[in-house]
Design a protein around this nucleic acid. Structure first.
Lengths: 106, 106
DNA sequence: CGCATATGGTTTGCATCACAAACTTGTTTG
DNA sequence: CAAACAAGTTTGTGATGCAAACCATATGCG
């Protein structure tokens, strides 16, 4: 019994609150630096850091490190796939929510 | 450095996809049995079971077990708090999403 | 100079937890 | 009676999110 699953599929990588916040911010500004992201998402440095590397490995963001005014500056840009996936995720959530009106028994 | 956190707070207990699905369904139908929930959420019996006990312990649903036609029948009803928390969660998500339009630097 | 403090991160250790798989309990079927 | 089925529950474990510790560089200051 394969337990069908073609309805709503939430991507855990994106659904995780921290990453959801990061990607949502990035989906509007396209690129932002570490400090800005930390302020907007409310994440700690540590968590932001690890979430970012995870997102980078997944190819959802692109990270560039340089020095600006003698300080390290990490710039994070959302990729095409990143934009697509986060947009899709919001759609999935919308679908799920709509599942509450009209609880059909298929 | 307390790393401020008064913006959007996503409740992990509810945010978890499985539970989000369960609660969303229940928020519209108020009560449903195990089998129905399994069909609508697409979860396996095992996962559904553990998610349900977790939700029950948190007081978000109320579970009643009985026999119906000689078969075990688990009825799950959403509680007042459950309704409130899931509604609030959708609001939080809405807020987060809106954070993408108008990325204010406070 | 030498030490403290700040800034901008990264790494590590641990505790949680979601999932699949195995198990349970009772029922129906052959 | 032995399978097979139905409706759940329990268990084992790998993944992972979080906080705390750590690192590197810069600047303030006595």
């Amino acid at each position: 019994m394969p337990e069908r699953n073609d309805e709503v599929v939430l991507d855990r990588l994106i659904h995780e609150p921290g990453r959801l916040a990061i990607l949502t911010v990035l989906s509007s500004v396209n690129a932002a630096d570490f400090v800005f992201l930390q302020r907007t998402t409310g994440l700690t440095k540590g968590n932001l850091s690890s979430h970012l590397t995870k997102l980078e490995q997944a190819g959802l963001v692109q990270i560039e490190k340089r020095f600006l005014h003698k300080k390290p500056n990490t710039n994070v840009a959302i990729t095409m796939t990143g934009k697509a996936r986060i947009a899709n995720h919001w759609e999935q959530l919308e679908h799920l929510k709509n599942l509450s009106e009209g609880a059909s028994r298929e």
